[in-house]
Simulated assay, not measured.
Amino acid sequence: MAEARAAEVDIVYLDYNATAPLRPEALDATLAALNSVGNASSMHHLGRDAAARVDAARRQLAGLLNCSTGEIIFTSGATEANNLALRAAYARSGALVTTAVEHPAILETARAVTEGEPDSLVLLPVDGDGAVDLEPLDGIFRERQVALVSVMLANNETGVLTDLTPIVKAAHEAGALVHTDATQYVGRLPVDLDVLDVDLLSLSAHKFGGPQGVGALFLRRGTSLPHRPLLVGGGHERGWRAGTLNVAGIAGLGAAAEAAGLKLQSESARVSDLRNALEVGLTARVPGCRINGAGAPRLPGVTSITFPGMPADAVLAAMPYVAASDGSACSSGAPTPSHVLLAMGRTRDDADSTVRFSLGYDTTRRDIERGVDAAAEAVAQVRSVLAATAEP
């Protein structure tokens, strides 16, 4: 159970969207690779052993995604994979289309590659539940040539899902490529790349129980893209990234992918029930709180809850033994409110009063009970302090 992983302080871990606890299978595979010596590019026996671990991980990840091993490029994580995808695709002629609620790894990369050409970047809006508004797409494809459409499968802050089917169909008919940042989706819901039909997909191991610092880019065979590696040198990973392969991390990624795939349906259903219990418990205990994206399909283990007038940082500080988040972990400390919630029409005050709870494979019913108690008490404590300081 999640709380047993930190017995010293008995933490209730509800921050899987930031990083998931390392699965035992991934830990075993990572340690086994760390205890072995050998560069996966070396031709001697130890090098071949390291290469075999990498090959096994490719097969394991390909099994989870239903793709060919030759379509997988290992990276340092989804941020690098996103950069590779957008930089290579934008090297084709045309505009780059994405959404207003993407992760900063997409939005900042998109702004960087289109710098000096502001008209080449198009951001699709979302509705009040965070669902992408697809109505502008037809006009965009009629009015301009598009190089790439990049839309995330699941939002990292709200868990809101996007059905890519109409996007892929329209983009391909217009001659554009489609990329998806599937960082929060892979290992939590089924991915069948034969059905999904995107050209590129990014993922990160630590979101589904693998080690941090390793991920992958799926690049569909036959997709015509110029190499735009961020690191140049030895030409590893078919020229897409140079540098000695992170064999231990890759082995852990593969093991986590296989473990997640074996229990995908049962874990998704169980975690969905726990998320629902968390929301029911908090809405009953904290009148007036609101669930963001509740009207849209969402990931099974994610809930974004606004406690109006209660600063999220104060609520989190008042429940030190519950690990949750006030937004994207990659944006923590940022002086601006959540761009996702603002795009959904929330006020800055509401965005600053929102806590994200995210559950996963190791979350228990007891974790939820303790999380509800702690959050309700924390909100009451913050409310009391605010009321006291407001008195004349």
Rank of each mutant, 00 (worst) to 15 (best):
L124Y: 09
L299N: 05
T98N: 08
S266M: 10
T244A: 12
V168K: 14
A110W: 02
L230S: 14
Q60G: 04
G301K: 02
A216E: 05
A6I: 08
A216L: 01
V340I: 15
F74H: 05
E258P: 01
V286S: 04
S120L: 10
L161P: 01
L124D: 04
G77P: 05
V372R: 10
G233W: 14
A88D: 02
E377D: 15
G295A: 14
L65V: 09
P226K: 05
L148Q: 04
T114Q: 07
E108M: 11
K207S: 05
G239R: 11
R298Q: 12
N156T: 07
V195D: 15
L217R: 12
A182N: 10
S202H: 10
S272M: 12
D15M: 07
T354Y: 06
G175V: 04
P136D: 13
G233Y: 09
P229R: 10
G345D: 13
P308S: 05
T363L: 06
Q60V: 03
A376C: 09
D350R: 15
P287I: 08
S332L: 13
V372T: 04
D127T: 07
A52M: 03
A329F: 14
R285I: 00
A95Q: 04
A351K: 01
R53N: 01
G187S: 03
E279W: 01
I140L: 14
L193V: 00
E102C: 14
G327Y: 12
G139R: 06
P297M: 09
K169M: 02
D55A: 15
L341K: 04
F141G: 03
Q381C: 10
E115V: 12
E25T: 01
A182T: 03
L231M: 11
E173A: 15
L34C: 07
W240H: 06
A216K: 01
D362Y: 02
T303K: 06
L177S: 06
G243H: 09
K263P: 00
R270M: 12
A50I: 11
A171I: 12
R298I: 01
I106C: 08
E8Q: 10
E237C: 02
E391H: 09
S384M: 09
L262N: 02
Q381G: 09
A374Q: 06
V146F: 08
A32L: 13
G345C: 03
P226H: 08
A390I: 03
Q184K: 13
L22F: 10
S268K: 00
L217E: 11
V168R: 14
H103Y: 01
M310V: 02
R111D: 08
A388N: 05
T364R: 09
R53H: 01
G116L: 13
P308R: 08
L107H: 12
R220I: 05
E369T: 14
H339F: 05
S331P: 00
V178W: 03
S353K: 00
G209D: 00
L161G: 01
P104L: 09
L264A: 02
R298W: 01
M310H: 13
D367R: 15
S353T: 03
R370G: 12
T347F: 13
R23A: 15
